[in-house]
Design a protein around this nucleic acid. Structure first.
Length: 284
DNA sequence: ATGCAGGCGCGCA
DNA sequence: TGCGCGCCTGCA
């Protein structure tokens, strides 16, 4: 049965900015320019109308609570943008460009596997691979005469062999994902412990032990799932944009970029990263 | 066709 | 500790 939640007078909410800024892989644009996506066991359609956002879909629990958490609706993005815009004109400019960005609160397990798959990969292919995994191992949910598939739990994914992953197109990431599933099942990787770890340095150290998780992937997981707004993932685009804007286009090392970001943007560096990334990647 | 895409893991100094 | 290199795959 379909549920509905209407957010009145939203601020800082733009579907394109949110779903196309590179943080998520399972939201797709519909013919009518709304977006439909799936998180946990929820299939949600997001529709923007004048002065309101309409969330509708099939939800295990209360759709309002699910959306408030997932879309970070209790966070004051106007305040965040004000603070960041004062830092420098480049950031202010990119914030104007991606004013409706929000950092989604995505499930740790899905984020972990998705970003292991993202390594040395491109977004269309990442999305295709994830859809294949979900269709093969997730649970089916019907919504408006279409079938959607949940992201498989560790138990569900444990049915896949390395060869199965290879057939789904993971390439050399097959062993990494397989190993991660196994280690999660035997509790060598403890998802709950990771969720509860407050210290970002310890958290990163733990994430780096996971096969297929290097510095960049670990940062993405911390920002996109564990709400660590201070971490600043450095991918090729961020490296490019920071080098161009602040280092006279001289390509800097990731380490230099991170040190710079911490100094320049402080505790909200991760948010700054999203605005800069979205702005720069959209230029091409 | 060859290079490249939101890196990682390995081997070597 | 820090570097260089190879890697599945699909697409331009």
């Amino acid at each position: 049965m379909e549920q509905k939640y209407v957010l009145e007078n939203p601020n800082s909410f733009n579907s394109i900015h949110i779903f196309e800024c590179g943080q998520c892989f399972r939201w797709n644009k519909e013919e009518d320019n709304t977006y439909t996506g799936i998180f946990k066991n929820n299939v949600i359609n997001v529709k923007e109308e004048k002065n309101k956002i309409i969330f509708s879909g099939v939800c295990e629990n209360d759709i309002k609570n699910e959306c408030i958490r997932y879309f970070d609706l209790n966070q004051d993005y106007e305040d965040i943008k004000d603070k960041l815009s004062k830092i420098d004109k480049y950031l202010a400019n990119s914030i104007k460009y991606g004013e409706g960005i929000r950092i989604l609160h995505q499930e740790l397990w899905e984020t972990l596997i998705s970003f292991i798959i993202s390594a040395n990969n491109n977004i269309p292919r990442i999305k295709t691979i994830i859809e294949r995994i979900c269709k093969q191992y997730g649970k089916e949910i019907d919504f408006r005469n279409k079938k959607y598939y949940t992201f498989p739990t560790p138990e569900e994914l444990s049915k896949a062999s390395v060869e199965d992953f290879r057939k789904l197109g993971l390439g050399f990431r097959d062993v990494r994902v397989y190993e991660t599933v196994q280690r999660t099942l035997n509790k060598e990787i403890d998802l709950e412990k990771l969720k509860n770890e407050k210290n970002v340095d310890i958290l990163k150290e733990e994430l780096l032990k996971v096969p297929g998780v290097g510095p960049k992937v670990a940062d993405c997981i911390m920002l996109f799932s564990l709400k660590k707004y201070q971490v600043f993932p450095v991918d090729v685009w961020v490296r490019r944009v920071i080098s161009e804007l602040y280092f006279e286009n001289e390509e800097q090392k990731p380490k230099t970029i991170q040190e710079f970001a911490k100094k320049q943007y402080g505790e909200l560096a991760g948010l700054a990263q999203q605005y800069l990334f979205y702005w720069r990647r959209d230029l091409v």
